[in-house]
Design a protein around this nucleic acid. Structure first.
Lengths: 209, 209
DNA sequence: TTTTTGACCAACTTATTAAAAAAGTCAAAT
DNA sequence: ATTTGACTTTTTTAATAAGTTGGTCAAAAA
């Protein structure tokens, strides 16, 4: 890694810290420059504008997400364990990066407009990962013959939606409280259980599908 | 119904029309007064302030919701049919009252602050209704022994969350488009199917619960 | 050549205020 | 009991001035 790249990283890391603590709007290029003891114009040597720095940060966060997630899921095959690990991991991620409002409809327009591609890719990637586990489970004969991609997307979107809705319903605060996040995790686990077990029919299926 | 009550109703109906078309903020008491050909002070004879009119409107909408919903669900016992009817009904409801942003975290503060009780009650009531159907289904031996209240709340919250998330992910417009609402319905139906059938295990359950 | 910086400008926010519009009141009329 | 004209108060909106931030550039430093 060249000196140049190192400095770039330093800038991104400082921006990441400030963005995730104060939010993007409340972070100035000068503050980031001060953090790493250079003047503000130096930043513009590495990033043409603030937007591209934001994009770089979101990209790094996305990479970090999958790096850590894949580490967590390594050597796991049990689908229930996979689901629960993802839920727990997402909780930690929300705690860390809530201020970025990455899944929030009322997020900064700048994120929606410049990072939708990254976020869409992330969603697709996570869907693919979970789909892989579902597929394995199907192949092992544990699950009925379902469309892994579709089920995966439905599961993950339902998790995200459930989280959004629970947090939206709670008193609007700057950060979701510990109990709220706890509640989100529990309800998401319940939903995971439904996905795994469903409302099992006894005997033959009385409801035509 | 007294003359007084009739006029009250007239006011509420006009407010309902304007609120659901233009939104609460963009509707003035004068416009409502004009609609029913009285002067603005007359409204204040029936409602002490705008807030109480808003509350009355939300209350009426909530009542209308359950009245129509219970009509739709009358004589239905098949749980799948119940789920699908609710999903279709909610779609129509979102179309009609989207401008009120009743489930939106970025909704008018006035709604959050004054109508949270009504909205919480509505949520509880709908949960109870669905729980009743689930209970019946359990009693008929169609479903395994689940907690109907819990399952009902989980199902409905997941539906709402999924809807929020799909609409949030789409291009932010004034109104969600027809295709988006269509997509929401389809995904919600898929989720309903999961709740009904789950990812069925073949043979004995290999995943400990 | 690569990187950094002081000095600068332009674009965007925030604060302030004035004007307009809305909410809300009340005594008198119906 | 209900409605209204005339009114006051509160809230929004519009305009604009002051300050901040994003962004540029030629020259200096490494």
């Amino acid at each position: 890694m060249s000196e140049n790249d190192k400095k770039r990283e330093l800038i991104i890391e400082s921006a990441m810290r400030r963005f995730s603590h104060f939010g993007i709007q409340k972070t100035t290029m000068n503050e980031i420059a001060d953090d790493i003891a250079v003047t503000q114009p130096s930043l513009y040597y590495y990033f043409p504008d603030k937007t591209s720095l934001i994009v770089a940060v979101i990209e790094k966060i996305s990479n970090e997400y999958f790096e850590e997630l894949e580490k967590k899921l390594k050597d796991i095959i049990c689908l229930k364990e996979v689901f629960y690990k993802i839920i727990a991991f997402r909780k930690g991620f929300v705690e860390r990066y809530f201020m970025l409002h990455l899944t929030d409809p009322s997020s900064d327009a700048i994120i929606r407009e410049n990072c939708s591609g990254i976020l869409n890719n992330s969603r697709r990637k996570e869907t693919d990962i979970v789909a892989g586990f579902i597929k394995s489970s199907v192949n092992r004969g544990e699950l009925s013959n379902v469309d892994p991609e579709k089920m995966s997307a439905l599961f993950l979107d339902s998790l995200t939606g459930l989280s959004m809705w629970i947090i939206a319903r709670s008193e609007k605060k700057l950060y979701p409280g510990t109990e709220q996040l706890q509640d989100v995790e529990i309800r998401q686990q319940e939903l995971a259980d439904i996905f795994l077990r469903g409302l099992k029919y006894k005997g033959t299926n009385p409801i035509s599908v």
